[in-house]
């Protein structure tokens, strides 16, 4: 494994890039949702990162992370990272699913939930969890990416970000 050191290892994506357009359309983000941020494509790994617009690679210095990873693959703008969803998912207005507390408990722990296929038109969705906190208050929180597969909603939340309710 090596870290990129050259300036052209990362390329900024402008607003007309297919990744950005697809992301905005599929999830219904408002047009100003990412004002002040820039999406960057890391050419070697194909991942897309979101970073504050002031950020640039430093020539000659290996880069380990460029802000926050938005997607592991530029060809799959809908396959968003859990970190990205947890930070920006509340701004999405389409392709979102809200789970109840029990569903959230299953999903956040990395389990599958039975899901009728006619209610799952899209392959990936932003999953909003309903968490009943220890004080009884209810929170709706973007938890991670859900994937529909054979009548089930699969949790794509990485192991390190899973939790028990």
């Amino acid at each position: 494994m090596s870290l990129p050191t050259k300036l052209d290892a990362f390329q900024a994506l402008d607003d007309r890039h297919v990744f950005v357009i697809t992301l905005m359309e599929e999830y219904g983000f408002p047009s100003d949702a990412f004002a002040g941020w820039t999406f960057w494509h890391r050419c070697e790994s194909d991942a897309v990162w979101i970073a504050r617009s002031e950020m640039r690679p430093i020539p000659g210095i290996p880069t380990g992370a460029f802000g926050m990873m938005a997607s592991k693959n530029i060809a799959q703008p809908t396959r968003l990272s859990a970190s990205f969803i947890q930070r920006f998912g509340h701004l999405a207005s389409r392709s979102t699913i809200t789970l109840n507390h029990e569903g959230t408990r299953m999903f956040a722990a990395g389990n599958r939930i039975s899901w009728p296929s006619d209610e799952s038109p899209r392959h990936y969705s932003i999953v909003i969890g309903t968490i009943t906190a220890s004080n009884g208050e209810i929170y709706h929180v973007p938890v991670g990416r859900g994937r529909f597969e054979r009548g089930q909603l699969c949790s794509d939340v990485p192991k390190a970000q899973r939790f028990q309710l």
Binding site: A51, I61, R87
Partner: peptide, 19 residues
């Protein structure tokens, strides 16, 4: 651990370098 913590906390303004 550096990257994991910053991502979990939702930080987008940090450029992580190894030098």
């Amino acid at each position: 651990s550096l990257r994991h913590n910053l991502e979990r906390l939702g930080v987008t303004s940090a450029l992580i370098t190894r030098h």
